[in-house]
């Protein structure tokens, strides 16, 4: 099933609107909500990006944490300039993911899934064991420079939107086709001289760079980070966004993140019901609406059009 490519200009308009909203919102909570939604959207889009090669990469959560810790360590412990700390987040995440991918992408399917899960939990464990970076309590005191502090949500929203467009751009490129080819039948790319392992690593690295940047931005948005923010659960939620929004469409992760983040605000804090809510959403979305909200919208539109004729 091939879904028509979305109106890219509509997406650009939407992104600009989001940034403007973050810039002009009088209530800081609303502005930060935009950042929160876009952060989740990047996480979900990155998870979906690796699904292109057919792998479920739980370590998306780990690289989000790596980005956040990189930025925070450079900012708080080393006192490096803002721009540099933000630049290093995607770089370090990408570098680490290249190593991770080089070892683990020899496996696939269930093994890769399990290893990426174990990796995520181990990285989190490592944070808790290092006293310099605050152990279990993490790091505090990452602040954007005065010049952009007031408009930080808009700044972060712009960069996150750019990351989303970058992922989309790669997906639409020839490289994206190679990723899909690997998922479809990896013998074909191998037979025509393509290095499949390298391409898989590249796919994981690109996704990791995007979530690494999101992690760095998250550190400045939140001012405080802790190991528990980066458990495998982050990837599970990202998966819920992808599933509810619709895996088949590049906008799926964004729609899913927006809907679930907004609805999630209502159930947040009541941990038992939060769990049941997210769990039920995943189960129902998977069993009843395999195409997610976007797939559902497509079907409804089809029905309406069919009726109009």
């Amino acid at each position: 099933m091939q879904i028509r490519s979305p109106g890219v200009w509509a997406c650009v308009a939407l992104a600009v609107a989001a940034v403007l909203f973050a810039l002009l919102a009088t209530n800081p909570y609303h502005a930060s909500l935009v950042v929160w939604i876009l952060t989740n959207a990047v996480l979900a889009a990155a998870l979906r990006f690796v699904l292109q090669i057919g792998e479920l990469n739980i370590a998306t959560a780990a690289f989000f944490g790596v980005g956040a810790y990189t930025t925070s360590i450079c900012a708080v412990l080393l006192g490096w300039p803002f721009w540099l700390t933000l630049l290093l987040a995607p770089l370090v995440a990408a570098l680490l993911s290249a190593l991770f991918g080089w070892v683990t992408l020899r496996t696939k399917g269930p093994y890769f899934l399990l290893v990426s899960f174990a990796f995520t939990e181990v990285v989190r464990l490592i944070y808790t064991q290092i006293n310099v970076i605050g152990g279990n309590s993490g790091l505090v005191g990452m602040f954007p420079p005065m010049a952009i502090d007031a408009h930080y949500p808009a700044f972060a929203a712009a960069l996150l939107a750019a990351a989303l467009f970058a992922l989309y751009g790669v997906e639409r490129s020839d490289l994206g086709r190679l990723f899909k080819a690997i998922r479809n039948n990896d013998a074909i790319p191998r037979s025509v001289g393509l290095n499949v392992v390298f391409l898989k690593v590249l796919c994981v690295v690109i996704a990791a760079a995007a979530v690494g940047l999101a992690g760095g931005l998250h550190a400045y948005a939140n001012n405080v980070i802790a190991p528990s923010d980066f458990s495998y659960f982050v990837a599970i939620l990202a998966l819920a966004y992808v599933k509810i929004g619709g895996e088949g469409h590049p906008m799926g992760p964004v729609v899913g993140a927006a809907v679930l983040t907004l609805v999630g605000q209502r159930v947040a804090g009541i941990s038992a019901w939060e769990n049941i809510f997210y769990g039920a959403v995943i189960v129902v979305a998977l069993l009843a609406f395999p195409g997610g909200l976007i797939g559902l919208a497509g079907r409804v539109r089809g029905l309406v059009r069919g009726g109009a004729r």
Binding site: N275, V283, L286
Partner: peptide, 20 residues
């Protein structure tokens, strides 16, 4: 593989929520 994994995650969340 992916579908069942996602389903099991959803079930885990629901069950843990119920236990809680």
């Amino acid at each position: 593989l992916n579908g069942s994994f996602i389903l099991s995650i959803g079930l885990l969340l629901v069950l843990n929520g119920i236990y809680l």
